[in-house]
Design a protein around this nucleic acid. Structure first.
Length: 294
DNA sequence: GTAGGGTTAG
């Protein structure tokens, strides 16, 4: 298998990219593998140049591979990714979604919405189940209730109203906009809730200052035999801390130990916050952090 | 043919 230590210039140029063969499939796989191995923008640009020379870039699936790397790689920039996207003659739906996702994570979430509208106008594609979580994420970052509600309407009209990923995004969106009533209405209508549904609603209640409702929901989760995880416990601990409910906080500490909830840094920090209220927790927190990181 | 959601405080 080739590596980036092999100069890309040594790769033979495919004479006719329009005629796929077993040999060309192997060549494509080599290029995809090189994309995955890129460790700098310079490497990625080398692969990009090679794909332009061989014509591989003009295959929409191959172009999507390069574009995804240009948006996800820690060394890349959205500016370069955007240039890559603009060169793709006919971006497929996956590539459009990747562009919308990239902007939803960025400091320009409005570009996510703008490019979604471009996709509707300029491409033959309609949004799919992957498009909406990115759009709702952008609306959440924009804190625009009206924008998110438009997406919610589209979700229902597009028959994705049962998709738990999309509905969980909507719970988080409505709670972030401060509309806990709408968030809860989405939550109760999910027919097959998963742990993220519960976590989204519990943390939504905590962020909205409804600590009792958060703890009540945790008891409901228990009654429904849903297995909580570290994120659930961060929400519940946060509610106890803010409510200064030491008794429930102690119970939660035991619950985490007895149920083998996997500790991570965020949960350790949430326990530390609680430990300011219960100083006896401090030695335990230090021990836990040492176990994880030392 | 590739993919999507939730977490602490400061």
């Amino acid at each position: 298998m080739g590596t980036l230590s092999t100069p890309l210039i040594s790769l033979p140029i495919q004479a006719n990219p329009e005629a796929p063969t077993v040999k060309s499939d192997n060549r494509n796989r080599l290029v995809f593998s090189l994309i995955e191995q890129c460790t700098s923008l310079r490497h990625l640009k080398q692969v990009h140049a090679h794909m332009l020379r061989t014509g591989l870039f003009f295959d929409s699936y191959s172009a999507s591979k390069l574009f995804t790397a240009s948006t996800l790689s820690p060394f890349s920039s959205l500016e370069y990714a955007r240039k890559v996207f603009d060169e793709i003659p006919e971006p497929n739906l996956y590539t459009w979604n990747t562009l919308i996702r990239a902007y939803s994570w960025s400091t320009e979430p409005s570009e996510s919405v703008r490019n979604f509208l471009r996709m509707l106008c300029e491409s033959p594609y309609f949004p799919n189940k992957f498009t909406f979580p990115f759009l709702i994420k952008a609306a959440t970052k924009l804190s625009r209730l009206g924008v998110g509600q438009v997406f919610h309407g589209l979700v229902v009209k597009s028959s994705f109203g049962d998709d738990v990923f999309i509905l969980n995004s909507l719970i988080h969106f409505y709670a972030s906009c401060g509309d806990l009533d709408l968030a809860y209405r989405v939550f109760v209508r999910i027919s097959e809730k998963d742990v993220v549904s519960w976590n989204s609603m519990i943390s939504g209640f905590v962020q909205g200052g409804c600590f009792d409702k958060a703890l009540e929901l945790f008891r409901e989760l228990e009654a429904e035999n849903v297995k909580p995880n570290a994120v659930t416990m961060v929400g519940v601990l946060s509610a106890c801390t803010k409510k200064k409910d030491l008794e429930f906080g102690r119970w939660i500490r035991l619950y985490i130990e007895q149920n083998g909830i996997k500790m991570d840094l965020t949960l350790s920090n949430a326990m530390l916050d609680m430990s300011y209220l219960i100083m006896t927790w401090l030695p335990m927190w230090v021990t836990l952090v040492c176990k994880i990181y030392v």
